[in-house]
């Protein structure tokens, strides 16, 4: 699994899919999902394909996750914070242009 090579020794506790994990503070939600060993970030609403972040800069929308109950957040643009609840999106329809975020 991807390793945190340069991250802060400080950690924060978050939950990913309801499981409590400890991750380096200051990393992005996308990085946290990868770092704890998940092989993908979401599945597509159309055919259930597994996807992970392609761009890490807010362009591809492959990293959409539910953060503290709000769906369709771009995980690569959000940093983890103590107590954050992250849920990988499986069946939730992904936003059309006027909804969501």
């Amino acid at each position: 699994m991807p390793k945190a090579a340069f991250s802060s020794p400080k950690t924060v506790s978050i939950t990913i899919d309801g499981v409590k994990v400890s991750v380096p503070s200051g990393i992005t939600v996308t990085a946290a999902v990868m770092e704890v060993g998940h092989s993908y970030i979401r599945t597509t609403p159309l055919s259930g394909q597994e996807r992970s972040g392609y761009c890490q800069m807010g362009v591809c929308f492959e990293c959409l996750v539910t953060i503290d109950g709000v769906p369709n957040q771009q995980g690569c643009l959000v940093k983890v914070s103590e107590g954050m609840q992250v849920t990988r999106q499986h069946t939730a329809p992904v936003i059309s242009i006027h909804e969501g975020l």
């Binding site: 340069f6 770092e35 761009c55 890490q56």
Partner: peptide, 16 residues
Amino acid sequence: MGAGAADLLLKDSGLT
């Protein structure tokens, strides 16, 4: 992923 994206993961999150 993009090669630049991998560098952003490193810069943002120290992740390799």
